[in-house]
Design a protein around this nucleic acid. Structure first.
Ligand SMILES: [Mn+2]
Ligand SMILES: [Mn+2]
Ligand SMILES: [Zn+2]
Ligand SMILES: [Zn+2]
Lengths: 136, 136
DNA sequence: TCTAACATTAGACCTAGTCTAAATTTGTGG
DNA sequence: CCACAAATTTAGACTAGGTCTAATGTTAGA
C-alpha cells in the first residue's frame, strides 16, 4: 500500500519522499475529513521528526495537484477531503463529523440557468444529525 | 435609521448601547458579507475607541439572537450575513465576493428522503464568476 | 562523483479570535 | 436624586491555525 501511494504521487508529478508518502497515506486513505493539525498529529506518531511546515506544504501540494480538496464547511476548520469527485456534505450538528453524500442522492435544478453568473462548481451543504442506529 | 437599529436590538432583548448600535448599523444594513475584522475596521472609523472584544462580542450576540448568521464558505474567512432567511450563496472566484442567490432560484430535491440523516437546514454553495455587465 | 535543484527542518512570525481583570456605564429601588 | 448592583466595555495578554525564512539535508542526473 505504501507502493500504491508513492506511485500515485509520482504519477501526479510529486516526488515521493518518505515524509510525503507518510502524510499522503494518512490523508488519502481514510474517508475522514481531517484538518491539517490532525494530520500533523497522526503522522507524527509514526514519524516523529516530521515538521509542521512539511505537513502543510505537502497537503497544499496535494490540493494543487488535484489529489485532495480542501473544504471550509464550518467555522474555524479547514479540512481535507480525499474524495475529489463531485459530492455533497452533511455536517453533524452534534458531533461535528462531516459525512459524504453521493452526488446522485440529490438533484439540484436551475444552476445552469442562473442569471448573471457562470457557475463552475457547486455542492449542497447540509446541517443535521445522523439518525439513531437502525434496529438494534 | 439609528432609531431603527436600536429598536431592532431592543426588540431582540439586546440593550442598545452606543457601541452596539454602531456595530449593528454597519453589519445589519448593507447586503455585503463582512468579516469581523472588516466590521471592526469600519466601525472604528466613526467610533475610534471601540475595542475588538466589543465588536466580536456584539457580532456573536447578534448571531445568538438570530439577527445575523455566520457563514464559513471559503478558507480563512468567517463572514456575517444580515439576511437570515434561507438562501443560497455563490462565491466569485475572481473577486472573492459572496453573492446571495434567492431560495426559489434553485430547486433541490430528495433532501427529505436522505437515508440515515435528519437534515435541519441546507443551502447550495456555488463557485463561479459574475458575467460581464450586460449590454453596455 | 559533483553539483544544482529539490525537500525538510526549527522556529520566528502573522492573523483571527478568545479570555481576563479592571474600569465605566447604566438601570433601579429607596 | 443617590447608592449600588448588574451589565457593558476596554486594553492587552493569550491561543490556535497557518505561513515564511534561512539553514541544512537529500537526490537526480550530467
Ligand atoms: Mn490521519
Ligand atoms: Mn461595514
Ligand atoms: Zn467529502
Ligand atoms: Zn447571504
Amino acid at each position: 500500500m505504501a507502493e500504491n501511494v508513492a506511485d500515485k504521487l509520482a504519477r501526479s508529478g510529486i516526488r515521493p519522499s518518505a515524509q510525503r508518502v507518510a502524510i499522503a497515506e494518512h490523508v488519502l486513505v481514510s474517508s475522514l475529513h481531517p484538518s491539517a493539525e490532525q494530520v500533523f498529529a497522526s503522522v507524527r506518531l509514526m514519524f516523529p521528526q516530521v515538521s509542521r511546515a512539511t505537513v502543510y506544504n505537502t497537503l497544499n501540494l496535494l490540493v494543487e495537484k488535484g489529489l485532495l480538496r480542501s473544504l471550509a464547511l464550518s467555522e474555524g476548520n479547514v479540512v481535507f477531503d480525499p474524495k475529489v469527485e463531485a459530492h455533497h456534505h452533511l455536517v453533524d450538528e452534534s458531533t461535528g463529523e462531516i459525512h459524504d453524500i453521493p452526488w446522485d442522492d440529490l438533484v439540484v435544478q436551475n444552476v445552469e440557468s442562473l442569471k448573471g453568473f457562470d457557475v463552475s462548481e457547486y455542492q449542497v451543504v447540509m446541517r443535521g444529525r445522523s439518525r439513531e442506529n437502525p434496529k438494534p
